[in-house]
Design a protein around this nucleic acid. Sequence first.
RNA 1: CCGGAGUUGGCCGAGUGGUCAAUGGCAGCAGACUGUAAAUCUGCCGGGCUUGUUCCCUACCGAGGUUCGAAUCCUCGACUCCGGA
Length: 394
Amino acid sequence: MAYLYNIFQIHQQSPKTKARTGTLNLVHGTVHTPAFMSIGTLGTVKTLTNKELKTTGAQILLSNTYHLWLKPGIKVLKQFGGLHQFNSWDGPILTDSGGFQMFSLRKNNISNEEGILFTIPESGDRIFFSPEQSMQIQTVINSDISLVLDYLPVEETNYKLNEQAIERTFRWSKRSKKEWIKLHQGKWIGSQGYDKSGKQNILFGITQGARFLDLRQRSAEMILELDFPGYSIGGMAMGPEPEESRWNQVDIQTSILETYKPKHLLGVGTPTDLVRFVGYGIDLFDCVYPTRNARHGTLFFELDDNTYTTERILQKKFETDVNPINPNSNFAELRQYSKSYLRHLFKTRETLGYRLATMHNLEFYHNLTAKIRQKINTGKFDEWWQKYKFQKNN
RNA sequence: CCGGAGUUGGCCGAGUGGUCAAUGGCAGCAGACUGUAAAUCUGCCGGGCUUGUUCCCUACCGAGGUUCGAAUCCUCGACUCCGGA
């Protein structure tokens, strides 16, 4: 069946690793993979306009169901006919389902088999969130890619809790799919892809299993049954653990999930993570890392073909640094403004500083994924990927 | 000239006999950040070294004094502010 699959087309498969380039065909456009998705939780990548975001090389925006549900709320999103009209982003959008908020906001919610009861800190309101509701909201948002509501255990190192988590995630995925089909007039796009006339949004399944390889395996095997058009691998960077352990977790799941379907690694990661996990079969990434670090004054720089470093712009040594932020940037601002000036903007908490740093880091990330694609397409990925490393700046 | 209030570490500002090298905040220096309650958070922040939950110096305007012990009490002086002549 794989040869009919037209949601995702693989262009170049690396000979010795699972790395591949491809195109993901979505309602609002095509994404060249491996790709990094910038995070715009509330509909905006903090500090940037859509035009600036595109200049960084962004192909697809990630937003968040839970946060959009609270603000601006369903009513407003319905009035606009979806997030694309509301925030004027005309490219593809992937929405996270809100499952992660059960984990990140775990102090403010309780959950059971039915769903999650969130307490809103500002108002004290208690609101109930279920797989069905997440699907309804994402349908209103009109995401190109929606995610099922998954379940994350509160303790990432507890085997029993993680075993329960993969089972509940499976049941919630099932409910998500059922509701999704209902909301899309009975149409389901699975392993057969879609026909050319009926371009339609898609829903990804999610795997869990934390650091337990047998749970990772079972979670992936279970989710196969539901025949999603693509998969997100969840529960990855939840706590401290050895790098190899995480590589193995991803490796085992990408081995089980259909090769011809797109794989998304939720919430990862650092530049080295990206390169590494592409080698283990990941096509899509999303992470707060470049944007949050930007706002906190840490900028990413390429040193050479297989090394990157970071610079903390607030350091004293940049006080008199007349060099441009990035002489090779697509942004005239980053070619013109000096590091000294950028430090000054950060010191004085001028918003322009956060913007420039965000532009810079996202441009770095998107250049990195472009480089990964180029390495794969020219057959050089396999000899390069394990050499790619971070070097501390001094 | 008289009466009142005050003077604390780079700045602002707590502290009114020992547990005070002195709470906070700012500034400064350094670090963290992985499906964003994060333009946030953490550490250091008089000097020295053998870096000590009880080390050594120098410190709460200045000079004396009381006391086992003073940023804290007393005396005098300097300066600032507020009233009144």
